[in-house]
Design a protein around this nucleic acid. Sequence first.
DNA 1: GTCTATACGGGGATAGAC
DNA 2: GTCTATCCCCGTATAGAC
Lengths: 210, 210
Amino acid sequence: MTTTDTLSARDQILDAAESLFASKGFGPSTIKEIGARAELNPALLYYYFGSKEELYQAVLLRLGEGLVARGSAAFEAATPAESIRGLVHAQLEFLRAHPNVPKLVVRELVDHDARHAQAVILQIAAGLFQRLCGVIERGQREGSFRRDVEPRFAAVSIIAQVVYFTIARPAVGVFLGLGPRGIDAATTDAFGVHAGEFALRALSNPEPAA
Amino acid sequence: MTTTDTLSARDQILDAAESLFASKGFGPSTIKEIGARAELNPALLYYYFGSKEELYQAVLLRLGEGLVARGSAAFEAATPAESIRGLVHAQLEFLRAHPNVPKLVVRELVDHDARHAQAVILQIAAGLFQRLCGVIERGQREGSFRRDVEPRFAAVSIIAQVVYFTIARPAVGVFLGLGPRGIDAATTDAFGVHAGEFALRALSNPEPAA
DNA sequence: GTCTATACGGGGATAGAC
DNA sequence: GTCTATCCCCGTATAGAC
């Protein structure tokens, strides 16, 4: 089982690094800690990845792959409105299930101005953002959405709600009067519904006949 | 000028630490760098603050004070709609002028689950969030805003747009087709207008007579 | 209050055995 | 491929002169 073990060791390191980078950031996470969490020798990291920084990039790359997939189903909905509801719901679900994703991406944004995350950002841009814009434009053509909205700004507003809620969870909990740990699954679901409807009301055409 | 020099040294350290923590994060910022940027001996840091962590807390505390002030004027507008427009504009202006603020706060959220930022979060909650909720509720009572919206969720959605746009600037630039550095002042202003109108359309009552 | 000098630990990374 | 041992630098923090 040499091959299996090889893959497994590499993945063990990636898993350990992902959770450590997500919880502590790049700088404070140490090679020795990553090795310990992976239950492997820290020196293996250099065998597989060459350096701590290259390991970091590999983690980001692997993360980006799973991110787009989850939202894709939403774009097959019949109406633009359903697509948007589905997308918000799917993204919120995904981010809740994988809290490392937004943490790592946002950390990369503020820590390194996204220098290591260009590939991930392009993935998201092509896989989610552009398609969301397409859905909005379709709604505008079909007359259900108002035309005096810049589709790309609207897409930013939609994504912003989901991402902010996830990232700023401790602050949002305090804002809502629930305490820094007070956001539960029910609140998250309720906010997901709100975010979708909020966006749809902002987009909906007051004169559907126009 | 002993007193002046004393204050000035302390503030020089705070200024240097603020910009360094904002640009590199807490972990990677070193005592020696902070001293160098402040043009003072690194050992002074311990004289004034006791430790690197206590210095960090002092930076966060000082930052929180200026944050609320800028938005406060908006709450004196005549109508809820004007308050929301004014708040979005003022916050976007403030965040653009002080890019350290969102960076440090978000960094603290993801790095330490906001453990060091509790005081700042409470400040924002009391000084901005609650008042924003109050404005929304007033609009609902007066009939200009629809009543089937949870005011606190709506407030989160409003803040989310502004914060996300600021924090995720490199990603948003790519999304908009402008490149990672492509967001200029005009785009920021345009988005600010959009964000305000987006929220107001989502809130506005379709049957103003109700 | 401000500086110099230094202790001390822990960091990333490498050499080389197996 | 995996491990042991270790180098060397740089980090925080302190002691003590001025």
